[in-house]
Write a protein that binds this DNA or RNA. Structure first.
Lengths: 154, 154
DNA sequence: TATTGTTATACTCTATAACTATA
DNA sequence: TATAGTTATAGAGTATAACAATA
């Protein structure tokens, strides 16, 4: 029976000092979330990073490529391929900024707005599933606590 | 003044739907933690994954390579290079398991125990820094909430 | 001089499939 | 037939340095 050694394993093995380290649990929880995200969004062409950019462009029409990256913690250099990908998919439009000819102003393309809506519905379901053991208060608390950690970013 | 556009940026730009998504905040907080981890442990040769393995081996002397990977969510195939690296660094010892000649029993090497202790001290300081805006109750709460999410791993 | 976007590059983490040797 | 470890390989995310065009 295959379950026996697994049960034994789960019962007797320990994580050691990891148990009390927030960094470890953050890593695992974030990984579990990411895996479920890509499972739920398989076939849509959407990924966590791309969704992040779409969300920021949608909320800030005409935002610069660099500014969008800065908000999301994405380096200039890495934004290039990501924006190319979004433009190729016809999800966003990229025009030279009116006030600064070095910069690009990003706006949503119609297909991008539709994708954003479609994926958002799936993402809400995925969040509901992943957070099903947390009360409404717990969920708010979690986001608040995570926000305090994000603010420590250097 | 370079701070002016940045201030304007922070004031007026928005994250959009990301604001309310736990997955996004988990991703950012985990990334901030990871970045600080590697900053604090620069020069030691330690990385998050390696520390995880060391912690598990330390807590479960003689554990199998596969069992260790399963506890940490690391695939068999990816364990190989990681264990090779730890053996090359003389941080762990790998012997054929007494009861199963297919398996490897992992134990700490003296240098590994020393590294673990040294790094743990730095990691505790790094956690203290990253969680400085959280009360003791908040920290416990955070780990509990993350644990519930980890349990959703499929 | 500083900034926007770009290219090139490299490293880490993760995922899958196919293989071997033992069980 | 299943499991432990291995190899090969590929995709994705992230990091740095150097460059052109513009501010």
């Amino acid at each position: 029976m295959a379950s026996q050694p697994l049960d034994t394993e789960t019962e007797s093995l320990e994580l050691g000092v990891l148990t009390e380290l927030a960094g470890y649990h953050l890593r695992r929880a974030s990984g579990a979330f990411a895996a479920d995200f890509s499972r739920v969004l398989a076939g849509t062409g959407m990924r966590q990073v791309l969704f992040g950019i779409l969300s920021v462009v949608d909320a800030n029409p005409g935002i610069n490529q660099g500014a969008a990256g800065r908000m999301l913690g994405i380096q200039r250099a890495n934004m290039v391929a990501l924006i190319n990908e979004l433009v190729d998919k016809d999800w966003i439009e990229r025009k030279v900024a009116a006030d600064d000819r070095r910069a690009f102003a990003l706006t949503m393309a119609p297909a991008g707005s539709a994708k954003l809506a479609e994926c958002l519905a799936r993402i809400r379901a995925h969040e509901e599933e992943m957070l099903s053991d947390l009360s409404a208060a717990d969920r708010t608390r979690l986001i608040t606590l995570l926000g305090k950690i994000e603010a420590k970013e250097k």
